[in-house]
C-alpha cells in the first residue's frame, strides 16, 4: 500500500523516519532525548526542525546520519534502512547523506590545511585518481562554496567563522550527497555572515538539487529557508506543517508561544506576546501525558493522562494536542 502511495505522490519522500527513539542512560535514569518521532522529507525540499535547547533536534539529526545509534524506530533513506546498515553499507550511505555542523571552530580539525579537510572524503572513498585530479576537485569545491583559491594551503586558525563554515560545507559536498543534515549551521555566526551562508546553502540547493534537514533554534532563519517545519518539544514533535501556514497560524499552544516570542526588527510590529510560565521540565524518565502540559495555559488534568498523538487536524497540518480542534 505504501509503495502505491509513494508511486502516486508527485514527490516521493527521500527520507522516511518513523517511531524514532533515542534514550541516553544517565546517572538518574533514562534521558528521553528523542521520543517517538516520525516525519518524512521530500526530495529537493527543506524540512526545518525548530525547538529550544535540549528538545532533541540535534540528536535527531545525528541519528539520521548514524552518529548516534537509535534506541528504536526506523530511518528509511531511499528505501534503505539506515539503522540496520552494515559498516560497508553505511560507508556507502555516507556518500549520499552528509552533515554540516554547528560550531565552525570545533567542527574542523585545527591541524589540517583547508585542502586536507575538504579533500579527505575524496581520499577515503577513493573518488579521485592521482594528485592532479585531487587538486582540481578540491579547488573546484572551494570555488563552489566561495573560498578564495589562495586559501588552499591555509590553516583554519587563519580564517574567520564564516570561511570556516564554508570549509565545513565544502567537506559535506565533496562526495556529491543528495541529502544534508544542517545542524544549526549559522547560529554561531554574525548576522551579516549568517546571511552569506544562508544564501550559499539556498544557491547550492537550487544548483545541485539537495535535500536539507535544517535544524535551528532561530525561527526567522528557519522560516526563510524551509518548505515545511516541525516543532519539537522535549523529544517529541508537537506540530508539523507547511512553513507559510504554520507561521501564519500556529495551532499547538507551544507553537503559538514560540512564534509569538520572536523579536521582530520593525516598528510597531509588537504583537500579543504569550509569556509561558516556568521552564522545560526534566527529560529524565518523563511522566506520561503531554510534555507541555505543565506550562500550558489550556492544560486540564486529562492532558496528563496519555501522550497526545500527532494527528492531522486540517489538511497538511499535524498537531499533537488533545485540544487541537479548538485552536484551528
Amino acid at each position: 500500500m505504501s509503495a502505491a502511495k509513494q508511486a502516486s505522490g508527485a514527490a516521493a519522500p527521500i527520507l522516511r523516519v518513523s517511531g524514532l527513539k533515542k534514550y541516553f542512560q544517565s546517572a538518574h535514569g533514562k534521558l528521553h532525548a528523542v521520543d517517538d518521532v516520525s516525519f518524512d522529507i521530500a526530495k529537493g525540499k527543506t524540512l526545518g526542525m525548530v525547538g529550544e535547547s535540549g528538545c532533541g533536534k540535534s540528536t535527531t539529526g545525528r541519528l539520521l546520519v548514524r552518529l548516534h545509534e537509535a534506541t528504536a524506530g526506523s530511518i528509511l533513506y531511499d528505501g534503505q534502512e539506515v539503522t540496520a546498515a552494515s559498516d560497508r553499507e553505511l560507508k556507502k550511505l555516507r556518500t549520499r547523506m552528509q552533515m554540516i555542523f554547528q560550531d565552525p571552530y570545533s567542527s574542523i580539525n585545527p591541524r589540517h590545511t583547508v585542502a586536507n579537510i575538504i579533500g579527505e572524503p575524496l581520499k577515503i572513498h577513493k573518488k579521485v585518481k592521482g594528485a592532479a585530479e585531487y587538486e582540481d576537485r578540491v579547488r573546484s569545491l572551494m570555488a563552489t562554496v566561495g573560498l578564495a583559491d589562495r586559501l588552499y594551503d591555509a590553516y583554519p586558525h587563519e580564517l574567520d567563522g564564516g570561511r570556516r563554515q564554508r570549509i565545513g560545507i565544502a567537506r559535506a559536498l565533496a562526495l556529491d550527497p543528495e541529502f544534508i543534515v544542517c545542524d544549526e549551521p549559522v547560529s554561531a555566526l554574525d548576522v551579516s555572515i549568517q546571511a552569506q551562508i544562508l544564501n550559499l546553502l539556498m544557491d547550492l540547493q537550487d544548483k545541485l538539487g539537495l535535500t536539507y534537514l535544517f535544524i535551528t533554534h532561530d525561527l526567522s532563519v528557519v522560516k526563510h529557508i524551509s518548505d515545511d517545519i516541525v516543532i519539537m518539544y522535549m523529544g517529541q514533535i508537537v506540530e508539523r506543517g507547511p512553513t507559510e501556514e504554520l507561521f501564519a497560524r500556529p495551532i499547538h499552544p507551544y507553537g503559538q508561544a514560540l512564534l509569538s516570542a520572536i523579536p521582530v526588527p520593525k516598528l510597531n510590529a509588537r504583537k500579543e506576546r504569550i509569556i509561558l510560565k516556568s521552564e522545560v521540565s526534566s527529560p529524565i524518565d518523563p511522566k506520561p501525558g503531554c510534555r507541555f502540559a505543565p506550562r500550558c495555559a489550556y492544560a486540564s488534568p486529562e492532558c496528563a493522562a496519555a501522550d497526545p498523538a500527532l494527528r492531522e487536524v486540517s489538511p497538511g497540518r499535524y498537531v499533537a494536542c488533545r485540544l487541537a480542534e479548538q485552536f484551528v
Binding site: 526567522s220 522560516k223 529557508i225
Partner: peptide
C-alpha cells in the same frame, strides 16, 4: 541598512 538586509523577514 546592510544589517537590516541580512535579516530574514518574517512577514
Amino acid at each position: 541598512q546592510g544589517l537590516f538586509g541580512s535579516l530574514p523577514d518574517l512577514s
